[in-house]
């Protein structure tokens, strides 16, 4: 359905938050689900996890990191513009009171983590969040995550926020001090999720990851998003996006995420060149390059 963008704000460098009027999806959305979006007739269909929804106001929130052509082009939209939004897709997160849940978010993965942390806390869990990023300003949604957590820890590569290092170090320290949690949820770059999975496997801590693979339709039709889980092909769009981290073949998944690297780079380069030309023609400042 065509949905109107109500607000756009830049929450961090190259991170934008979109508030979108989409009452039908807002009402049905459950933590863990995603939408497919299409920003114009020639665009790609891309999956984006729903970061928040408000059934009363009829809105959903998407947080988008501008990494490729489509996400950068989306960043040029303005409030009042409409985009195609399809969903909510994927299985909702299984939420129950397990005791203590550690929610680990890295980079853009913090956005989909937010509704899950909230739902886990509402179900009565003690929610411990560990958020990581390259530097302070790239650790997004800190206020929202703090409000959704009982306890929060930060790590950054440069030590500008929290401890210097990786989220896995923070998880180690947490387990050392507070003991084994009942569940871990990890959402972020595949390499981070794989590291968390390897860390919790010997400790036998149930660990869930939310995967972000290449999709076309998002409804189970193309199989482009397939991953090996427990030695079987599973579709992230309809069987996921969440899976048992200990059963996922991350190595093959990471290779598959690179399928279109060349074309993505070409599209990105062309977009930036066109962007520069437009900016030059308008005599304005070039932004985002």
């Amino acid at each position: 359905m065509m949905a109107r963008i109500l607000e756009i704000d830049e929450i961090a460098p190259a991170f934008k938050r979109y508030l979108i009027h989409e009452p039908v999806i807002a009402r049905r959305h459950r933590a863990g689900q995603f939408v497919m979006i299409l920003i114009h007739d020639h665009a790609e269909r891309i999956p984006l996890t729903i970061a928040d929804s408000d059934a009363v106001r009829g809105t959903i929130t998407l947080v988008v990191q501008e990494v490729g052509k489509t996400t950068m082009e989306m960043g040029e939209l303005a409030p009042g513009d409409s985009i195609t939004v399809v969903g909510p897709l994927g299985k909702p997160t299984h939420i129950e009171n397990l005791g203590t849940c550690v929610c680990i978010g890295g980079g853009a993965g913090i956005a989909p983590l937010l509704p899950i942390a909230r739902a886990l806390r509402e179900a009565g869990n003690h929610v411990v969040s560990i958020l990581g990023g390259r530097t302070l300003e790239l650790v997004i949604l800190r206020l929202e995550m703090e409000a959704a957590s009982d306890e929060i820890h930060y790590t950054t590569d440069d030590g500008s926020l929290g401890a210097k290092g990786m989220v896995t170090h923070a998880l180690d320290r947490y387990i050392e001090v507070s003991g084994r949690p009942d569940m871990v949820v990890a959402i972020g770059p595949a390499i981070m999720m794989r590291a968390v999975a390897e860390q919790t496997r010997p400790l036998e801590i149930p660990t869930m990851v939310s995967l972000n693979t290449i999709m076309v339709d998002g409804t189970g039709m193309c199989g482009g998003c397939r991953v090996r889980v427990d030695g079987e092909n599973r579709f992230v769009c309809v069987d996921g996006p969440e899976f048992d981290a200990h059963a996922v073949d991350f190595d093959r998944m990471m290779q598959r995420q690179r399928i279109f690297l060349e074309q993505e780079e070409e599209a990105r380069r062309r977009f930036l060149t066109a962007h520069l030309c437009r900016a030059a023609a308008a005599g304005g400042q070039v932004h985002g390059t």
């Binding site: 359905m1 065509m2 039908v24 999806i25 195609t84 399809v86 969903g87 909510p88 897709l89 409804t219």
Partner: peptide, 9 residues
Amino acid sequence: CNFVVGATA
């Protein structure tokens, strides 16, 4: 279009 019965409603 863009309406997935089973998901959207």
